[in-house]
Design a protein around this nucleic acid. Structure first.
Length: 197
DNA sequence: GTTGCGATGCGCT
DNA sequence: GCGCATCGCAACA
């Protein structure tokens, strides 16, 4: 299998970059995950993007240079990671939704003791927990530092569909996954939140 | 296999 | 305060 580490492949429109990430391998420490599902977010044009309403402290790294991570904290307990793909000043990113653990399976199981192997990185927050990605990794440079991304030249069959869990613009077919891969997360349409009492 | 709901804390208005 | 690019568990089909 031929591999390369060209971070220039991460530069461009989110819709171009997203399918390139499928099959790529994200590594932190001894755990490596082969990406099987991603989702594109295009800053200013995209009501579903955190960057739609402009730069804030949280979204700062999404407006930074491409080839870096944008990590955010949500639902009081989860961390999700994006790869920034627009250049400085614009905001575009690809959310890493799911993957398959291909190395460091022992460490991964230790981080998620109740998951079976298929579910270790099945979902954006699970993927971060399994890899050990935290908010401290927001803005991390994929070109140098502990987190690396290795591209895969093998072409898989790719499927597309609507995005998951969004309250705004959920129907745009900006989600990409490797067809028939068992580690792709289950699709659930955005549901209105219930007020807690 | 599905559907429903509570947990939980930070950013934004 | 309110809402959230979620998850895990329980209950049910």
């Amino acid at each position: 299998m031929s591999r390369r580490t060209e971070l220039s492949l991460l530069r461009g429109a989110p819709l171009e970059v997203a399918p390139r990430l499928l099959g790529a391998v994200l590594r932190l420490g001894d755990v490596a995950v082969r990406l099987t599902e991603v989702e594109a977010y295009d800053g200013g044009n995209d009501p579903g993007s955190h960057a739609y309403r402009g730069e804030t402290r949280r979204t700062r790294s999404m407006f930074g240079p491409s080839g870096h991570l944008y990590c955010y904290f949500t639902y009081g307990m989860h961390v999700c990671a994006n790869v920034v793909c627009r250049d400085e000043g614009a905001a575009g990113a690809v959310l890493l939704r799911a993957g398959e653990v291909i190395d460091g399976i022992g460490t991964a199981r230790g981080r998620r003791p109740k998951s079976n192997d298929r579910d270790l990185a099945r979902g954006p927050a699970r993927l971060c927990r399994t890899l050990g990605i935290s908010l401290d990794d927001d803005g991390a440079d994929l070109g140098e530092g502990p987190i690396t991304l290795t591209f895969d030249d093998e072409v898989d069959t790719v499927s597309t569909g609507p995005r998951v869990g969004l309250r705004h613009a959920p129907d745009w077919p900006w989600r990409f996954w490797i067809s028939d891969d068992p580690t792709v997360s289950l699709y659930r349409p955005a549901a209105p939140q219930r007020r807690r009492g």
